[in-house]
Nucleic acid binder design. Structure first.
Length: 567
RNA sequence: CGGGGUGUGGCGUAGCUGGCUAACGCACGUGCUUUGGGAGCACGAGAUCGUCGGUUCGAAUCCGACCACCCCGACCA
């Protein structure tokens, strides 16, 4: 590919909006362009990288016997109504009408379609197990996109679906996908770790997320170096040792002016935050009012809270008015005297005697509050976030918290979808059974961005060979002075056509100064930079530079041809 | 949706407080010179200053509404 005709342009200045290295470099080097919030075009270079990433994923899916296919982006809404997700999922599911006034949706994922296909196609246990996958555009109208390709609204995802006779079969498929994912991310040059995760809108019993550590990550991971414990903070269990036992003392009102936060309260009363109880107020998607109580030295984990009370439609923070309407006071809140509320208490609070809690009047708290003596919980559950330095729930050592980006996930779906769609097979026993499903996703563009996050330097991108858009970047210098330069460079470019794994090389044939060409070559990040110049020819051929290590050497033209051919 | 911020040629910005010819660097076109690390000179093209409305003799600048984008939160590959 001649750079003079490549549809791209490099930027000398950093784009103002790009904060992450991957976003900045992909924009500057001409791989992607933004069209709208969370909506990107892939320019030819970006498209090639994307296809290379897909190819790695494809090979690893094929290796475990998954069959590639393709399912549609636009679905009749009936499909999503039948599974119930049309009603469960909020505005991130884009709904519209076609010309016949029929409800339609843009697909966020494809469990429904797979279940329908299974219903049509699979009749007998002999057809199982079976795994399918496709690369397809998803549209999710996310509340907020961010980080360039890290979080977008339209993106291509590899989603695979395993279909088994029973749980044991699902376990096997799940393990195969787990292993395929480990191989996939290793080949992409990503250090991904698998963490246990919440099942979210997918339902099902078990899920792992594959994470790469990154300060811009949107998830917090709880990691134990000692025993290898790794879970998403959303579900990681908090190990909370028993407090010192004390006799329950009588409650006592205490005036606490302006102590609307735990920090202010603890400072004012000169007690540790662990001697206080914190109240957080939420409203569920279906209108229930929830009071969550945790000890002052912990934070509420909303995922655990949602799961503890099976909140429909998630949670949103309650307003001051809503809190007051239930007999409580924001900033001075506790369940004492609460009305029309679901009271969920962290189990540690039940074990902690004589806490300071809100009095539900402005400027006042209550000392020596004890549960269940002073109020009655509707539920007691473990609903706090693990904190940095907490004891590991598995081995007792100390955990650390790190930010991570989710590059892939695997879910044990079970039979929710196949039951909803009556996707049954006839078993050896002559009975009809629901097919047991798993689903497995990898976001292609996000992985491209993560590869750049992991593989760049101050000059630009440094592609691993496995995903590089081209194996080599050929730079011709001093062609005006020495006709042989053009002659040799053209020849190398010709040799590259259709040759080797990459089928082509990038050839900078532009009439630019050497500085511009070298700078662009380093920005674009091909694994090998080939320089043809009067100097290199005099020295015996072509200068070959390894972009990653900076090592350079002069090779004969024949040797370089062999490199390009991939010999 | 709540909070914060930004919209001025392709990119990065100045100008806005204190209204009056829209400026600078890069990129772009032509010519000459230059050619192993973001070249020089000359000439040139390119912006109804996000949109709509208001104030005013006069608005990029002041006021209002709207739109878009970015950042922080609530959600996910």
């Amino acid at each position: 590919m001649r750079l003079s005709h490549l549809f791209f342009s490099t930027l000398r200045d950093d784009p103002a909006e790009a904060e992450m290295a991957s976003h900045r470099l992909l924009l500057r080097a001409g791989y992607v362009r933004q069209l709208g919030s969370g909506i990107y075009s892939l320019l030819p270079l970006g498209f090639r990288v994307s296809k290379r990433v897909e190819q790695v994923i494809r090979e690893e899916q094929d290796r475990i016997g998954a069959q590639e296919m393709e399912m549609p982006v636009v679905h009749p809404a009936e499909v999503w109504k039948e599974s119930g997700r049309y009603y469960k999922i909020g505005p991130e599911l884009v709904r519209f009408k076609d010309r016949g006034d029929r409800d339609m949706v843009l697909a966020m994922t494809h469990e429904e379609v797979v279940a329908i296909l299974l219903r049509d196609i699979v009749q007998s246990y002999r057809q199982l197990p079976m795994m399918v996958y496709h690369f397809q555009t998803k549209f999710r109208d996310e509340p907020r996109s961010r980080g360039g390709l890290i979080r977008v609204r339209e993106f291509v995802m590899k989603d695979a679906y395993s279909c088994d006779r029973d749980e044991a079969g699902l376990d096997k498929s799940y393990r195969e996908q787990y292993a395929a994912y480990e191989r996939t991310f290793r080949r992409l040059g990503l250090d991904a770790i698998a963490v246990g995760a919440d099942v979210g809108i997918m339902g099902g019993s078990k899920a792992h997320e594959f994470m790469v550590l990154n300060d811009f990550g949107e998830d917090t991971l709880v990691l134990c170096d000692q025993c290898g414990y790794a879970e998403n903070q959303q579900i990681a269990e908090a190990a909370k040792p028993d407090p010192e036992p004390e006799d329950a003392l009588p409650t006592e009102d205490v005036e606490t002016p302006n102590a609307t936060t735990i920090d202010a309260l603890a400072t004012f009363l000169d007690v540790p935050r662990s001697r206080t109880a914190k109240a957080a107020f939420f409203v569920t998607g279906d209108g229930r009012f929830v009071v969550a109580i945790v000890r002052g030295d912990y934070d509420v984990n909303e995922t655990k809270l949602v799961n503890a009370i099976k909140a429909i439609g998630g949670l949103r923070p309650a307003t001051v008015e809503e809190i007051r309407a239930r007999g409580m006071e924001a900033g001075y809140g506790s369940p004492i005297g609460a009305r029309d509320s679901t009271i969920v208490v962290d189990e540690l609070v039940v074990r902690s005697p004589n806490l300071v809690a809100g009095a539900n009047r402005v400027g006042w708290h209550v000392k020596n509050v004890n549960v269940p003596r002073d109020y009655t919980p509707d539920a007691v559950a473990e609903i706090t976030n693990v904190r940095e330095g907490d004891p590991c729930v598995r081995c007792g050592s100390t955990v650390k918290l790190r930010k991570g980006i989710e590059v892939g996930n695997i879910f044990k779906l079970g039979t929710d979808f196949t039951n909803a769609f009556q996707s049954m097979y006839l078993g050896e026993d002559g009975e009809r059974h629901p097919i047991v499903m798993g689903s497995y996703g990898i976001g292609v563009g996000r992985n491209v961005a993560c590869v750049v996050e992991a593989h760049h330097d101050e000059k630009g991108i440094v592609w691993p060979e496995e995903v590089a858009p081209y194996v080599a970047h050929l730079v011709a210098i001093g062609a005006a002075r020495e006709p042989r330069v053009t002659e040799v460079a053209d020849r190398l470019h010709d040799v590259a056509q259709g040759a080797g794994y990459w089928r082509d090389i990038l050839y900078d044939d532009r009439d630019e100064s050497p500085g511009v060409k070298f700078t662009d070559a380093e920005l674009l990040g091909m694994p090998w930079i080939l320089t043809v110049s009067p100097k290199s020819l005099a020295a015996g051929g072509v200068e070959v530079t390894n972009r990653a290590t900076g090592e350079r050497s002069i090779r004969s033209i024949e040797e370089v041809e062999a490199l390009i051919r991939g010999d």
